[in-house]
Write a protein that binds this DNA or RNA. Structure first.
Lengths: 340, 340
DNA sequence: CTGAAAGCGCTTACAG
DNA sequence: CTGAAAGCGCTTACAG
């Protein structure tokens, strides 16, 4: 890891400053407990030697790493990028470092990554969604490692969550779609198995249909992984059915952009021939033509608040807040109002 | 970090197996040095107690963390996402974990992050680009921490790099643009200060002009941070000049997408009224309409090879390979051929 | 092949 | 406010 003859240790600093290692340690960790004169001398020595604490030793002695781990389903598209960036920024201002890993939406890989992050001493963990094997939570509990689930709001889960109500959010969007006169709704959903956000969004869609006297059972649904290409394929499948939908509602913006491309490839105009909606309001949704009607999610706020809540848990200031953020329906050109 | 009464230590295992801690350690780290009978007994105890080595202690004693740090300029847009994903996957298959941090394109923050990752025991570091304060490299060298610069190919730098030649790549694209009959070229560049990729791309552009008898000095250039919005604004600035360009060449796809939006907002058609080009070939470039002519970069290959090269350095199997990857000009609809 | 013991570089009660 | 010293949980020459 490092060259011993070159890298100064606490001892070197102590010697240079003419104090004990305990005092140097205090200067670094709780400076208010050291009188100014001593502190100045010590800090000068720290500066002069270019001292940086050895992480491993610190971890061992203090039983803390000031590292927070986050496992996100994917780094490939921008779904989590903005929220994670804000999460990181907030951690950084509070002296924590973020360790990121991704699970490729696979529970097994996620569990591996969790163990890996824990082994590396993560003081706390941010996970996306809440639906996972109970053994995972037991494992973390046994090691007293705080976990926060984000991108969901589940006050009844017994675990702290920071996010929004996926089901209600999608229901609200569907209500708007129905208010615009759409009756023939088809759906491109993410894979719902093992993904509570995808499942909740689909449920919200069905809620809206039922609430408006439409039969959720007759609604065509294609489930497919969140990839643009898959959205395009699914769209064409849905549009080739005998009873064409007037709107294709997608589980997220990535699928919606794919659907848009599918429409373009079929020579269909959006929204004249068919409407398309998304979810998340990532940058993509405003970049494509037509811009996509979607559910706006406060990514940056979510990331920031998640960081604050998790650090609170780590530092035992709280047992973990559950925070609800509000999503809003974001109307754009890809959704046609059939009533006018 | 963990509950002491709950988490077993090496000592517990040794006691349970009736051997010394040294033997347990060997069973875990170099099993071939322990006779099978003993090893079996020890592993049974490890299993029975659910023992996992303490990371901090291990780091301290062994001076290795099996952690690789990467600092990228931004997590917000997808520029680095795909390459980083591949980098991570390769590390993972080789037993390493990736620690990611971002610098917001600011040298000061990058230096902070480097120190933070080093303090956390990163065995090696991946950085983007190569142009930074020499003291950074000195710092890393003093600690014998291998560094690999990616997204650039600089055989003469004396440091290992894995990437492509930004200057040649942009020059090749510009040559194509000129071959298509464009003479009035305007540029939206990323901020070149502290960003060798941006600077090299701009230089490549000038190379191409000069090589074709055009005067690089008369080429309008706007430098702006890599944000879609900035691309739109810069585009409008350039198009409001008296001598309108026939093509706006952008430093990356993010700016190009912004330019496209700028054109849309001005009521200009692309490529009928003006052509636009990008760089990177991120997914965005194929999503927008028209699709963007750009330089294709082999992101995944670059990430994978960078991982392999860096691990080699960490494990002292090599002193660091410099690997050149090939970029290619990717022609799409946003560039008009004026010669036909 | 195995063990006793030193040492890795910190932090933190406990005294003073 | 400061110091001496124990201890964190491992790894690894050094013996045997």
């Amino acid at each position: 890891m490092s060259d011993l003859r070159t890298v100064p240790t606490l001892d070197d600093v102590a010697r240079a400053a003419g104090v004990s290692t305990a005092t140097v340690s205090r200067c670094l960790n709780s400076p208010e407990r050291v009188v100014e004169q001593t502190r100045k001398r010590v800090m000068a020595a720290v500066e002069a030697l270019g001292y940086t604490p050895n992480f491993g030793a610190r971890v061992m002695a203090a039983k803390r790493t000031f590292t927070i781990g986050a496992i996100i389903p994917t780094m490939e598209n921008a779904i989590f990028a903005r929220g994670l960036q804000a999460f990181q920024e907030e951690l950084h201002t509070r002296g924590y470092t973020l360790l990121v890993a991704s699970s490729a939406y696979q529970p097994k890989i996620e569990e591996e990554q969790i163990r890996s992050l824990v082994a590396r001493g993560a003081d706390g963990l941010l996970l996306i969604g809440h639906d996972r094997d109970p053994s995972v939570y037991q494992y973390l509990k046994a090691r007293s490692i705080p976990v926060l689930s984000a991108w969901v709001y589940l006050p009844e889960s017994g675990q702290p969550t920071v996010g929004f109500d996926n089901r209600q959010s999608m229901r609200a969007l569907a209500q708007q779609v129905i208010d615009f006169g759409h009756q023939k709704i088809a759906v491109i959903s993410g894979i719902t198995k093992g993904n509570d956000r995808a499942a909740a969004r689909l449920a919200g869609l069905r809620d809206a249909l039922a609430a408006n006297g439409l039969d959720p059972k007759t609604m065509p649904v294609v489930e497919t992984p969140y990839e643009i290409e898959n959205g395009a394929v699914a769209f064409q499948t849905l549009m080739c059915a005998e009873n064409r939908p007037t709107v294709v509602m997608c589980g997220n913006d990535v699928l919606a952009v794919g659907a848009l491309r599918g429409a373009r490839d079929m020579g269909l105009s959006v929204p004249e021939d068919v409407s398309i909606t998304g979810f998340d309001d990532i940058e993509l949704a405003r970049i494509v033509t037509p811009q996509i009607t979607t559910v706006h999610v406060p990514h940056r706020e979510m990331g920031r608040k998640a960081a604050i809540a998790l650090i609170d848990m780590v530092e035992k200031r709280g047992t973990g807040d559950t925070i609800e953020l509000k999503s809003t329906v974001q109307l754009r050109d890809s959704l046609r109002d059939l009533t006018r």
